[in-house]
Structures are given as structure tokens and as C-alpha cells.
């Protein structure tokens, strides 16, 4: 219990750091802290595979990508923040979120959920257990996520098309503009001759 509380406090303070840090690199590093404390939480909950995946995938792969992007995009830039339209909204939002979070914590402490009395199923949390779940009863979720990832991949294509297609589109647009423009000009010419 004590360990969970310590890890939760670590995770929350790291995520507050992500939001409040001025430098994107600092934000990314705070995020690493958050991810690591979450991984430890998973370990305490006996979900070893999830903990390992969290460290390998998030802290290992995704954060490295993040850091690359951050260093490429913001190297040597000192960005000043724009003035806000509503002054003081951050403070108000912070106070409100602290109150809401406090209420949730109080509720969770005062009215805990039912405690699990059954022993953990065999292979809980390790690779075998996860694999049996994902390729057994929970296969439908895997399919849904696969389809979701397809749409994400398509989204990259739509929003950031290859240069060749961009050129084609630009040409098509010009052609349409020309075909639009021609009847109007002829009509204007006709009006001109008529008057």
C-alpha cells in the first residue's frame, strides 16, 4: 500500500512537471519519470509483461522519438508564451482540478470498491497470460485496435501526402480554375460587345 502511494505521488508529480515545464526537453524527461513510475506500479500489481512493455515501448521507443523531434524542431529556440485572452485562467483551472482530484481521492478512500477474494488466475500478467487473453476471448479488441491503427496510418497519408500527389492535386486545382474562369470571361466579353 505504501509503495503504491509513493509511486502514485511520483507519477502525479511527474505528470504535473510535464505540463508545467518550460522546455520541451524537460517535459519529455518528466514524461519518462511518469512512465517509469507507472511501470513500477504495474509490477506491484503483478503485471510483469505490462511493466516490461511499458518500459520498452514507451520509455524506450516512443520517448526516443519524442526527444528526436524535440531536438530537431526546437533546438536553440527560446519561445516566449503568447499572452492569454483570459488572464488567470490557468490558476483557476489548477485550483479547480485540485479540488476535483481531491474529491475523487476522498471518494475512493471512503468508498473503496469490492476487494478481489479469488486468487489470481494462472499466468496472470505474464506473456503467456496476455497472449492467451488477446488471442482468445479478447481477440475482438485486438481486431478493433488493428482497424484503428489502419485509420491512423491512412491519416498520415491524408494529412501529409507524398510530394507527387501534392503536385497532381495542385495541377488539378489549376485546371479547374481555368475551366471555371473561361466561361466567365467569355460572358464578360459578350457583355462588353453587347454594350
Amino acid at each position: 500500500m505504501v509503495g503504491i502511494v509513493i509511486l502514485a505521488i511520483l507519477a502525479i508529480s511527474a505528470s504535473v512537471g510535464v505540463v508545467t515545464a518550460r522546455q520541451p526537453v524537460h517535459s519529455a524527461l518528466y514524461l519518462v519519470g511518469n512512465i517509469l513510475s507507472l511501470a513500477l506500479l504495474y509490477l506491484m500489481l503483478k503485471a510483469e509483461f505490462l511493466a516490461a512493455a511499458q518500459v520498452i515501448v514507451y520509455a524506450g521507443a516512443i520517448m526516443v522519438l519524442f526527444l528526436f523531434v524535440v531536438t530537431l524542431l526546437t533546438a536553440g529556440k527560446e519561445e516566449r508564451e503568447l499572452p492569454e485572452d483570459l488572464p488567470g485562467q490557468r490558476i483557476v483551472a489548477g485550483i479547480l482540478s485540485v479540488i476535483v482530484g481531491g474529491v475523487f481521492v476522498a471518494l475512493a478512500i471512503k468508498y473503496p470498491g469490492p476487494t478481489l477474494k479469488a486468487p489470481l488466475p494462472s499466468h496472470f500478467g505474464d506473456l503467456t497470460g496476455i497472449g492467451r487473453l488477446l488471442w482468445g476471448p479478447d481477440f475482438i479488441y485486438l481486431v478493433a485496435i488493428a482497424i484503428m491503427l489502419v485509420s491512423a496510418a491512412l491519416g498520415v497519408l491524408v494529412l501529409n501526402p507524398p510530394r507527387k500527389r501534392r503536385q497532381q492535386e495542385a495541377e488539378a486545382r489549376e485546371q479547374r480554375a481555368e475551366s471555371k474562369a473561361s466561361p466567365e470571361t467569355t460572358r464578360k466579353e459578350r457583355e462588353g460587345t453587347g454594350s
Partner: peptide
């Protein structure tokens, strides 16, 4: 699954 394609 509903939202992601719509964002794009």
C-alpha cells in the same frame, strides 16, 4: 474507432 477517422 469512431473518432480517429473523423479527426483525419
Amino acid at each position: 474507432v469512431l473518432s480517429l477517422p473523423l479527426y483525419v
